[in-house]
Amino acid sequence: MSLLDYFRTSKASSASLAKERLQILVAHERSSRNQPSYLPQLQKELLEVIRKYVNVDQDAISVNFEQNDTQETLELNIVLPEHQNKTPKTTI
């Protein structure tokens, strides 16, 4: 750090940017780490079964696993195509 540095306008520091990015990333990776390992396979197979009956998109189904102190919740969310005018949401 030299005398000149004092006259330069300070931008948002790169360290704070690094911290922000890491906090988001680490939180995301930690939540997926605690998921059961069968989750991706379950999602794939569920999609196959559902597509036998309803023509849904690949991304129309989401499986979320949540954990708190007392219970574990597996949430299954299927968005049916629009013309069937129903959007059931199933929670197991």
Partner: peptide, 19 residues
């Protein structure tokens, strides 16, 4: 420490907070 002071490097507290 110099780079931390300049905002160029994550500080000890930052890393500890994340991990």
């Amino acid at each position: 420490p110099e780079r931390v002071k300049l905002g160029e490097m994550l500080s000890v507290d930052d890393v500890q907070e994340i991990l």
